[in-house]
């Protein structure tokens, strides 16, 4: 019998494969059997987790006690193995060791993108105030005092709204 893949060399290997839960059997030659061996699975999270082992700076700073996320119970060591966090709260509870990693991966630690309307808290308002302050300065430089006064009032209004919310989250 000829190899089912190349149809050239005689089949000498019997391979059973499970694809999407269905069993298929193929008869292959040595060469094709070797070529069809499953590729090494490259997992990005595992690769990233592995990178940690080669960072002396991070190892030095690592506190000795095992810390766990108080919400889901995941430890930093467990994250280290899988590259996946357990829940959104992990970012808060594991911050001491996670933050240096994030800075290294992302080159930054401050989100500057979109803010969701509801879950964004007062960040949307703070961003708006920042933007208006820039406008205010420009208007003053251009001596557009009437418009500047309007912008100033809008900033005050927004700031008082922040104050009512207690400033925090």
């Amino acid at each position: 019998m000829l190899c089912e893949r190349c149809q050239e060399r005689p089949a000498s290997v019997h391979v059973t494969r499970i694809i999407n839960g269905n069993k298929t059997e193929v008869y292959l030659c040595q060469e094709c059997a070797r070529e069809m061996q499953p590729q090494l699975n490259f997992s990005i999270p595992k690769f990233l987790a592995g990178l940690l082992d080669y960072d002396p700076g991070l190892e030095l700073k690592a506190p000795p006690a095992i810390e766990r996320c108080r919400q889901c119970g995941l430890s930093y060591e467990e994250f280290h193995q899988t590259g996946r966090l357990g829940c959104p709260e992990c970012y808060h509870h594991l911050a001491a060791r996670l933050d240096p990693l994030i800075r290294r991966l992302q080159g930054s630690s401050q989100h500057r993108g979109k803010v969701p309307r509801r879950a964004g808290g007062n960040l949307r308002v703070r961003r708006e105030i920042e933007k208006l302050r820039g406008q205010l300065q420009q208007l003053v430089e251009q001596e557009e005092f009437e418009k500047a006064a309007q912008v100033r009032d809008r900033i005050r209004e927004l700031e008082s709204r922040l104050g009512e919310q207690g400033g925090g989250q």
């Binding site: 991966l105 992302q106 930054s108 630690s109 401050q110 989100h111 969701p116 309307r117």
Partner: peptide
């Protein structure tokens, strides 16, 4: 799509880190 869904669902968001994701390589935006 994100805006429309955010009206219905509470997304995990942090003022400093942005949108929180299972892998830190996606966090932020």
């Amino acid at each position: 799509v994100d805006d429309a869904l955010e009206n219905e669902l509470d997304f995990a968001f942090d003022q400093e880190k942005g949108y929180l994701t299972a892998c830190p390589t996606n966090v932020g935006t």
